[in-house]
Simulated assay, not measured.
Amino acid sequence: MIRLEHVTKVYGKGKNTTPALSDLDLSIEKGEIFGVIGHSGAGKSTLIRCINLLERPTSGHIWIDGVDLTKLGKGALQARRRKIGMIFQHFNLLSSATVYDNIAFPLRLAKTPEKNIRTRVDELLKLVGLEAHAQKYPAQLSGGQKQRVGIARALSSDPDVLLCDEATSALDPQTTDSILKLLLDINQRFNLTIVLITHEMNVIQSICDRVAVIHQGGIVEQGPVAEVFLKPQHPITRDFITRESSHSELLDAVLAGPHSESSLAVKISFLGDKTYESIMSRTVRETGVDFAILQGTISTLKSVPYGQLIVRFDGAPDAIQQTLDKLTAKGLNVEVMES
């Protein structure tokens, strides 16, 4: 669906250049929600703006549905962009236009007949839950309502791709959840490919199928969210995940708490149906070790149940190692916590 090949973006000229993207490759499948996560300045906003050529790459190719956008002339590129919706962190609504007119704006630019515009805008108002707000102005709306207008406007031209540039970072947690649920519903209802840029791991965890981690203009890790979340390989990825799960604070507490030389602190992660099975209790009965649960959570990675325990095992070193081996063999992810 979307393919980036050797994409490089450099700002400035001569000696005053700033690299934003460096020889970046990325593939996104049709109908998936693909997340890109990175710290500020990593290049993620440049990346998403290169996908629809709002930023033209210095070199490389951008393919969507088999068409290389970098090879298109101005008119053909504008036509292609109509099938690529985009929503923004700060909404970018027309302050002097009503909700209805904001949503209708792209259709009027495309010279769509007014009767068709009315039908389409009414459909979108219903989709995003703003039927009662059609004649209000942006200043009369909450942040979440403004973003719903932005989503409706981005969908007005019936796009194949929806680009979301930090679409929830200006919202409170409760509103963020409602917007993410709306995006997930849109994805499932219309099989719409969504590319979502964020610096928040919980956003990736909530709705994304796959994720890429961007750092200093390059992709340092990518894969299915569960795989990347459970087995992060790059230090930047581990930093995002440990900050999200308060890993460092827990580790300090574990190491400071009462323990003996035969104690071992372990993080154990469960995925899918294993989250609700009594694997831990059955295993320690077999090996004879004692354990204390220091912290535990159950959540979801998109719609897949996910659990995580911080456990201290006490017993003979051989028995503890046997316990870890058995848990691993039963499909759990086991990580010894080290300072």
Rank of each mutant, 00 (worst) to 15 (best):
G288V: 05
D172V: 07
A212P: 01
R3M: 04
S246D: 13
H199L: 08
T168A: 03
A256V: 05
C164S: 04
A265N: 11
G257S: 15
G73D: 13
A79H: 11
H215M: 06
A76G: 09
F88N: 01
N116L: 14
T46N: 05
F313Q: 02
G150T: 00
V213R: 00
F229Y: 15
S281C: 08
N16R: 12
A329I: 07
M280T: 05
A212W: 00
A79E: 14
V220G: 03
E5R: 14
H61A: 10
A42L: 08
E335Y: 09
L47W: 01
L264H: 04
G217H: 03
V304E: 13
S269W: 05
Q135V: 00
G35L: 05
L251Q: 12
Q321L: 11
K13P: 00
G129H: 06
I310P: 06
T300M: 13
S278R: 15
L124K: 06
K181H: 12
D314R: 13
Y306D: 01
A256S: 13
D68Y: 08
P138M: 06
T176A: 06
A226T: 07
G85Y: 00
R120I: 10
D65C: 04
A154M: 04
I64S: 09
L192S: 02
R118Y: 13
A152K: 01
R82E: 04
G12D: 02
Q321E: 14
L127M: 15
I310E: 11
A256M: 03
E277T: 11
H133K: 15
Q174F: 09
I194V: 14
H133A: 15
A139D: 10
E32W: 02
M280G: 08
G144Q: 02
K15Q: 11
T58V: 07
R282M: 09
R285F: 07
D209Q: 06
T168Q: 03
L141N: 06
V289Q: 03
K44C: 02
V289S: 05
Q89L: 04
S169H: 07
S40M: 10
Q222K: 12
S278K: 14
G223V: 03
D122M: 11
P305I: 00
Y100R: 12
E131I: 08
Q147R: 10
A104V: 01
G218L: 10
L271F: 09
V304P: 01
L196I: 01
I214A: 00
Q233P: 00
G144A: 08
V161H: 02
L125S: 03
A253W: 12
R153I: 01
V161Y: 04
G85Q: 01
S95L: 12
G129Q: 07
S96T: 11
D252S: 12
